[in-house]
Every structure is written in C-alpha cells, then in structure tokens.
Simulated assay, not measured.
Amino acid sequence: MVTNLYFVRHAHSTYSPDEYNRPLSERGKIDALKVTNLLKHKNIHILISSPYKRAIQTIEGLTDWIGDEIIIEEDFRERRLSRNPVDDFEFAITKVWEDDAFSWEGGESNMVAQQRGIRAVEKILERYEGKNIVIGTHGNIMVLIMKYFDQRFDFTFWNQLDMPDIYKLSFDKHKLIEVKRIWNRDSFYK
C-alpha cells in the first residue's frame, strides 16, 4: 500500500524576524491559490503543516476540499540557523551544509534538524499508511528529509527550489520508492 507525502515548500513571504507569524506576501497569496488548484484533485486525505504562518497559509485553501482542518506538526518547522540573525546568510547556510554536524550558536546542525524531520515523517507513515498527505513546510527541512532517503537531495538541490515548490514522495511502508516534482512555477505564468 503506497503512502504519498506531498511536501509543499511555502510560498513567498513578507520578511519579518518573527518566524512563527511571518505571513505570505501578495505574490505568495496568489501562488497559494495555485497550490490549492494543483492539489485539490489529488485525492488528499490529510493536511499537516509546520506551525509557521507562511506554511499554513500556503496549504490552507485545501481545507475546503478535504473538509478537515490542518494538523500542526512542530517538527516540520524550518531549521533554526542561529540564535541571532546572521550577518551573511549565504556564508552561514553554506557552512552548515558543508558539515552536517556543524551548527551556529543556538542553531541546529543538518543532523539535528534532519532527525527531527525524519521523526515526524516516520510517525506519519505509521499513522496514515496508504493515504495522500499534504505537508506544508520549508525548504531546508524538506530537503534534509529528502536527503535522508536519497543523497542527491543536497545543498545544490536546495538552492534551486522554487517558492512555493511541491515534491511528491511515495513510500511502501518506510521505503521511499519514488520522488516526483509536481510544481513547475513557470507553467503557471505563461
């Protein structure tokens, strides 16, 4: 019995240092409608999201189609890069991807964030076997989860993600059997 996890990286958000309450931008709201239109015919059974507002807003349009609320899963929140804002984001994010055990002060290493994400995935695979599940989440944690199952999902891959972006991961029990990108941002703007 195949379980499909549709990982949805959130749409574009308006920057705010308040990670939990950062909302979608106007462009992000338009893209969230496109996410809804793309996924509403995929026979979705369950909606799960990071607690961050931008992740919730990106998938909340689907609640009308499946008739259920979004389940909040703390472990799908974005990885914490550092306790304090970093001066050079590109340098800081590159450094943590170069060494899976490295973390900035107050931040999470790739290993720690990945373990957290995998814990949530395993719980979902156990609880919702054979279902189609949409997971509203973030780029770093999504790719770290994907990398756990397949090493080709790395920093270069993360750097090429769209905002939003959607990847369908299909599992037989706990074994990943297929990864398919189902979002093509450019096709929505032609």
Rank of each mutant, 00 (worst) to 15 (best):
M1I: 11
N4D: 15
R9S: 01
R9C: 08
R9I: 13
S13N: 03
T14F: 00
Y15C: 00
Y15L: 00
P17C: 01
R22V: 00
P23E: 02
S25C: 05
R27C: 02
D31H: 09
D31S: 12
T36K: 15
N37W: 01
N43P: 01
I44K: 08
H45Y: 02
L47A: 04
I48T: 04
S49C: 03
Y52T: 04
K53D: 00
I59W: 07
E60H: 09
T63D: 02
G67D: 03
E74H: 15
F76E: 01
F76Q: 05
R77V: 01
E78P: 10
E78S: 03
R80F: 13
S82D: 05
D88L: 03
F89M: 08
E90Q: 12
E90W: 04
V96Y: 08
V96T: 12
W97G: 03
D100R: 12
F102S: 07
S103T: 05
E108W: 13
S109Q: 12
M111A: 12
A113H: 09
Q114D: 04
Q115F: 14
E122W: 11
K123W: 08
K123E: 14
R127G: 07
Y128I: 05
I133V: 15
V143P: 01
I145Y: 10
M146P: 00
Q151H: 15
Q151L: 13
F153N: 06
D154G: 07
D154I: 10
D154S: 10
F155Q: 11
F155G: 00
F157T: 03
P164T: 05
F171L: 08
K173A: 13
K173S: 14
N184I: 01
N184E: 14
R185Q: 15
S187K: 15
Y189P: 01
